[in-house]
């Protein structure tokens, strides 16, 4: 069966982000289908916070997310690999020095 034939009325996919407690950031928990954002929040509450895992929920339509492609990962992220001078341990200081 072709995809279009059976998924004509499939609910769109939402990505779910949960703040586990105040003071922490929202983190990606997973995704789920819902007819709209309000239903996505209601479903996320049931699917991802049955054991008090959250105090706040964000839902984002998956189709709205722009992501890097894995085949461009090298080009994007490898240039940082040889820049050790961006780390504090690159700089040699006398061991007896304190608070720096």
């Amino acid at each position: 069966m072709g995809k279009s034939e059976i998924s004509k009325n499939e609910w769109p996919l939402y990505e779910i982000f949960i703040r586990s407690k105040n003071g922490l950031e929202h983190r990606h928990a997973g995704s789920l289908h819902a007819a709209d954002a309000e239903m996505a929040i209601e479903n996320a509450r049931d699917v991802y916070t049955r054991r008090q895992e959250g105090v706040s929920i964000w839902v984002v339509p998956s189709a709205e997310i722009t992501a890097t492609q894995s085949d461009e990962a090298g080009e994007l992220f490898e240039p940082a690999a040889d820049k050790v001078y961006r780390h504090p341990t690159f700089y040699d200081l006398p061991i007896e020095l304190k608070h720096i």
Partner: peptide, 9 residues
């Protein structure tokens, strides 16, 4: 679904 198959499928 992350592997490119839909829920309905």
């Amino acid at each position: 679904e992350t592997l490119g198959i839909s829920r309905d499928q």
